Computed example of a mutant assay.
Amino acid sequence: MRKRKLSLLFVFFLGGVAGLQAQEKNVVVQSKRNSDKSVELTYEKNDPGHVLLALNFKELSNARTTKQVFALKGYAGAVTTLLPINREQSITYSYNYRYVRGKLNPKIDAEDIYILPYTSGTQVYVAEARFLKATYFGNTAPNDWKSYGMATDEQQAVVASRKGTVVEVTDIYDDEESDGTSFTSKQNGVIIEHKDGTLAHYKGLAKGSVKVKVGDEVNPGTMLALNTKRGDSNRYGITFVVMYLKSDDLYMNAGKTMGTSQSLYGFVTPQFFVDGEPAVLKDRTTYTAKSNDDVIAREMSKKELKRYQKGK
């Protein structure tokens, strides 16, 4: 495959999951007064993945709270319970909250292996994506920044690179015709949370082609969607990035601009199974996507492994 210059399709904008309240009303916190004058705070959310919640009490009397950041997982559950200091009086309170997707500082195994997110035999041109805030807003790219553009000559199926749970699906934006546009944040995508809490983003999917829904468990090779054209490129492609939540200071960017804000997230440089072994992808290089039984089965439970082997 002849190497050609990629469009700015592969400039990755750190928005979406990295922004507060990434998915509108993804988390709703409610409170209830109990007969013993305690106040119970609970949550409901739209997906089973990890979310970090920061509570800000604008008013709080007759109660104390030492913890204001809470890790949530699952569709619903308890946040915290406020106990009255004086049990004869009610608690007075008001609050607001912020949240971001992710498990705070997960334990990441450097030996985890990914497959290229295309079906076996697909020729994939890989280029490292630039950090949009640095390119356009004068910000500084994170020290561990790593994001890839992965392009194909023809439209191809995009598959999961690693086992995980689908925690977010965006499938609302029309595919764009080539009009010279260098970048748009309006891209369809899928976010998959892995067992260790890292998050894989697949952005640049064709509208109506997404085959998974929130809550689905996927394995390496599970079809997610089709890729699509963007901007002035003649190719089809996606951006692929793996990230994790590294800061619990959800208010640190309050009042900051695109040029001065900092990332709440860290970034992973994955090892991909290419050319018969795990390796870090090289910039502006063509690879052949290939499935591998050992990689596919690596994170499977015994029950899943038996089912997979039986189905082969």
Rank of each mutant, 00 (worst) to 15 (best):
N26E: 13
G121R: 12
K163W: 03
G121C: 10
L132Q: 05
G19Y: 13
N292P: 03
A22D: 14
T257M: 06
S120M: 04
M1G: 07
N253C: 02
T170I: 15
Y75G: 00
D249F: 01
A297N: 11
G77L: 00
K310L: 13
V295R: 08
V11Q: 09
K107L: 12
L9Y: 14
D47R: 14
T80E: 00
T165V: 12
E88S: 10
T92R: 15
V126T: 09
R298T: 07
V268G: 01
Q68H: 13
N62Q: 03
S247P: 03
G19M: 12
V280M: 08
T66H: 13
M300S: 07
I115G: 04
K32M: 08
S38D: 01
D293M: 01
L53S: 04
R284E: 14
V158F: 09
G77A: 01
A127F: 08
G221A: 09
A18R: 14
K5T: 15
S31E: 11
V28I: 10
K246T: 02
G189N: 07
G138Y: 05
G197D: 08
R101P: 05
L6F: 13
A54N: 11
T257L: 07
K32Y: 05
Q262W: 11
Y75A: 00
A110E: 15
R98S: 15
V190T: 10
S178Y: 05
P48F: 11
Y287C: 04
D112K: 11
G149P: 08
I115D: 04
G276L: 03
Q262V: 08
E59L: 08
G266C: 01
H201E: 14
P142C: 01
V17I: 14
T260C: 08
M1V: 08
